[in-house]
Design a binder for these strands. Structure first.
Length: 494
RNA sequence: GACCCGAUAGCUCAGCAGGUAGAGCAACGGCCUUUUAAGCCGUGGGUCGAGCGUUCGAGCCGCUCUCGGGUCACCA
């Protein structure tokens, strides 16, 4: 034991002493169940005075005064004050349990609602039951009228010990309740529209469907390296080929890349594919989905990153070239690689000579345009060079594909294509990616022979979209860090 | 990966040209049968993130490292 834990050890030792006193008194400090009949807040009102209650929760404040004590217990519904008085409790109940309770214990309380002389609705206990003795102290939980005094604020500790965060800062639960609701409403919308939810492999021998570096793992019995999936796209297309015309998967992807406010190495992604649709119909459907969810959780107007964002109006529609024209006064579609390169240089966009036409455009766009896209905006018409799974534009422009990305608050939320279903073309595109990989682009995609063979079987025209669910949750809850919408965000080991 | 900021008691924080630590709460003890931010009174608790250096002397100055926060890069 390091000496910086001396004081903590003292506290723990004292609590264990109390624990033993309870055991010596013939009471099990960790009983197997408790018949909790009421949530704490159920009867916390004037009209319930006199009612009998049986509830349970964690002690979050405590004032012992000899033969009487006041404590506040908390559950998910709220807090209530408990009044313990020696002569109102069964024999020895106060001496064995009441005198040995601490902040952080979980107790059951039987009693009656009453009002103290300072007008606080409380429970006058007729019995207190120890349900779980705390032996490790909680952070301070002082608060009054919703204002915290000594609180638990260290973000690192809060993320690493989320259970403490939930106890001390219970208001964060509302974000996670919304998270759950957003996900369930998303499923409901898709299910009601006839989509089938599926599960496809997380462990894959070939990864694909996005440009990203994967996590590696190993299967002992197969004696084989495996990758954690970076997308579900290729598998869902195989299901489309198999005849499941409306399909989606909502689950975790894993990308081996940097972490910041908008990125966690494992994150929740929704991918939706519908046969016989194109990217424009997919955009309409995406808009409907997001508006449906926003409406269901009553967040049609949100404040996100300092901007008021509304989901009531139609989403804006534009193209990459149109926005770049606005930003630079130049028509990028008429420029070649070196002209684009010079343009990027002149705008102080960080580019290097290795970048191709598509990457240069993408770089220009993300620096000059993305931050300005605040209200929900579909951006169409992306360069083919950075879209190996998307179909060429039907107007014959060989450099552009049918793709959109959806931006809100300057951040990307969705990515969608008219899915490429020409097997010859798809093979060429993936082989081109393989060349990039050979040239050192370790985020270029891999030739997935199983996928290519499936496409050769014949895939119907298909519209597909991927939506970043954690980001959608950030947007709808107004949280500015992905760490605040994930219970246990990735952290370095302590 | 780069830069900036941070790390002092269980929690929240203070500390000073550099003179080997302080408050509140928590904890413990006493009083105490209705308190309201923590009832009242008292007591204990720290190798100041880790290491190295400068110095008679380092929580404080310098360097290195670890972890976190932020900005950027990378990336959706």
């Amino acid at each position: 034991m390091s000496s910086d834990q001396k004081s903590l050890k003292q506290i723990i030792d004292h609590r264990i002493e109390k624990l033993n006193k309870i055991i010596d008194g013939g009471i099990n400090p960790y009983p197997h169940s408790f018949d909790k009949k009421n949530e704490i807040s159920t009867y916390k009102n004037e009209s319930s005075i006199g009612k009998s209650v049986k509830t349970a929760g964690r002690i979050v404040s405590l004032r012992k005064m000899g033969k009487a004590s006041f404590l506040n217990i908390q559950d998910e519904s709220g807090k209530i004050q408990i009044y313990l008085k020696n002569n109102l409790l069964p024999e020895n109940n106060y001496d064995i349990v009441g005198r040995n309770i601490d902040l952080g214990d979980i107790v059951g309380v039987t009693g009656e609602i009453f009002k103290t002389k300072t007008d606080e609705i409380s429970i006058r206990a007729s019995e207190i039951t120890m349900l779980s003795k705390n032996i490790r102290p909680l952070p301070n939980l002082k608060e009054k009228d919703g204002k915290a005094f000594n609180s638990f604020e260290d973000k690192e500790l809060r993320y690493r010990h989320r259970e403490l965060d939930l106890i001390v800062n219970p208001e964060i639960i509302s974000t996670f309740r919304l998270r759950s609701k957003i996900i369930s409403e998303t499923r409901k919308f898709l299910d009601n529209n006839g989509f089938l939810e599926v599960d496809t492999p997380v462990l894959q021998s070939v990864y694909g469907g996005a440009n990203a570096r994967p996590f590696n793992t190993f299967h002992n019995t197969l004696d084989q390296n495996l990758f954690m999936r970076i997308a579900v796209e290729l598998y869902l297309k195989r299901l489309i080929i198999g005849g499941i015309e409306k399909v989606y998967e909502l689950g975790k992807n894993f990308r081996n890349e940097g972490m910041d406010r908008n990125h966690n190495p494992e994150f929740t992604m929704l991918e939706i594919y519908e046969a016989y649709k194109d990217v424009y119909q997919t955009a309409e459907f995406t808009e409907k989905l997001i508006k449906y969810v926003a409406n269901k959780i009553d967040k049609e107007d949100v404040l996100f990153g300092g901007n008021d964002i509304s989901f009531k109006k139609p989403f804006l529609k534009t193209t990459m070239a149109e926005e770049l024209l606005k930003a630079t006064g130049l028509n990028v579609l008429e420029m070649d690689e070196s002209e684009l390169f010079n343009l990027a240089k002149s705008k102080n966009v960080d580019v290097n000579p290795k970048m191709n036409y598509g990457k240069l455009l993408d770089e220009l766009f993300s620096k000059l345009v993305e931050p300005t896209l605040i209200q929900p905006t579909f951006v169409f018409d992306y360069p083919k060079a950075i879209s190996p799974l998307a179909k060429s534009k039907r107007d014959g422009n060989e450099n552009i594909v049918e793709r959109f990305e959806l931006f809100i608050g300057g951040m990307e939320f969705a990515n969608a294509f008219s899915e490429l279903n020409d097997p010859i073309e798809q093979r060429k595109r993936l082989e081109a990616q393989a060349k990039l990989r050979d040239l050192g682009d370790d985020e270029a995609q891999i030739v997935d022979e199983n996928f290519l063979q499936a496409i050769e079987t014949g895939m119907p025209p298909t519209g597909g979209v991927g939506i970043g669910i954690d980001r959608l949750i950030m947007l709808l809850t107004g949280e500015n860090s992905i760490k605040d919408v994930i219970f246990f965000p990735a952290m370095r080991p302590e």
